[in-house]
C-alpha cells in the first residue's frame, strides 16, 4: 500500500493549475485588471515623473491587492458547488496538504504573473530601473501571503451565496501589515535605500501566515460544511 499512496498536495496543485490553464481567459483577468487600473492613475493625477515617484509603489501594491481579492473567492467556491469539497472532506487525508496545494496554485496563477509584469508598470510610471528588483521581490513574496490570507476568507464565506463583500471585509484588515511592508520595500528601492529590511519583515509575515493559515483553513472548512 505504501508505494501506491500519492502526494495529495501535488494532486490538488496539478488539478487546479490544469483548471486554470483550461480557463485561461478567466485566469488572466486579475493581471489585466492590475495593468489597466494602474494605467489609469497617471491619467487621473499627473503624468509627471517626479510626482509619480512618490506614489507609484503604493499604487502598484494597492492594485495588486485588489487583483488578488478579485480571484481569491473562487479558490473554494467552485469546489463547494460541484461537491469536490465534500469528496475532499470525507477523504482519509489531512486537509492541510490539499489546501496548501490549492493556495499555491492560486499564487502561481495570480501572484506570480503580477510580480512578473510589474516592471512594465514600473516603466510606465517612470520608475528608476534599480527599483524593479525590489518591486518584483516584494510582490512575489507578498502575494503569497495575500493568497493564503485570501483563502482563509474564501473558506469562511464558502457556504454563502454572495460572499464577495463579506470576504473583502474579513480579509482587508489582515492585509494591512502585508501592504505596509510590501510597498515600503518597493518605495525604498525607488528612493535608492537598502530595501532588504522591509523585505525581511515581509518574509517573516509570510512564514507566520504560511504556518497558521492552512491549519485555520482546514478547521474552517470542516466547520462550515458540517450543516
Amino acid at each position: 500500500m505504501v508505494t501506491k499512496t500519492r502526494s495529495i498536495f501535488f494532486t490538488y496543485l496539478r488539478r487546479d493549475l490544469l483548471i486554470s490553464y483550461r480557463r485561461r481567459g478567466e485566469t488572466i483577468g486579475p493581471a489585466i485588471f492590475f495593468v489597466m487600473a494602474t494605467t489609469l492613475v497617471p491619467l487621473a493625477l499627473s503624468p509627471e515623473a517626479e510626482s509619480l515617484r512618490g506614489i507609484a509603489a503604493g499604487i502598484i501594491w494597492v492594485m495588486a491587492l485588489f487583483a488578488t481579492l478579485l480571484s481569491v473567492e473562487n479558490v473554494f467556491a467552485s469546489d463547494f458547488k460541484d461537491g469536490s469539497l465534500e469528496q475532499l472532506l470525507i477523504g482519509p487525508n489531512l486537509l492541510v496538504m490539499p489546501v496548501l496545494g490549492k493556495v499555491m496554485a492560486h499564487w502561481l496563477t495570480t501572484g506570480v504573473p503580477l510580480a512578473i509584469i510589474s516592471p512594465i508598470l514600473g516603466l510606465m510610471l517612470s520608475l528608476p530601473s534599480e527599483a524593479f528588483i525590489p518591486l518584483v521581490a516584494s510582490l512575489a513574496l507578498g502575494t503569497a501571503s495575500l493568497s493564503l490570507i485570501g483563502a482563509l476568507g474564501a473558506a469562511l464565506t464558502v457556504s454563502l451565496q454572495k460572499g464577495g463583500l463579506l470576504l473583502t471585509l474579513i480579509v482587508m484588515p489582515l492585509y494591512i501589515p502585508i501592504i505596509i511592508f510590501g510597498s515600503a520595500t518597493a518605495q525604498y528601492g525607488i528612493d535608492g535605500f537598502t530595501w532588504t529590511g522591509p523585505l525581511a519583515i515581509l518574509g517573516v509575515l509570510f512564514a507566520v501566515v504560511m504556518v497558521l493559515c492552512p491549519l485555520a483553513i482546514a478547521g474552517i472548512l470542516r466547520l462550515t460544511t458540517i450543516t
Binding site: 490544469l18 460541484d82 461537491g83 469536490s84 465534500e86
Partner: peptide, 11 residues
C-alpha cells in the same frame, strides 16, 4: 457518490 457529482467542468 452523492447528488453532486464532484467532477470539474473543465477537466
Amino acid at each position: 457518490i452523492g447528488h453532486q457529482i464532484a467532477l470539474k467542468d473543465s477537466l
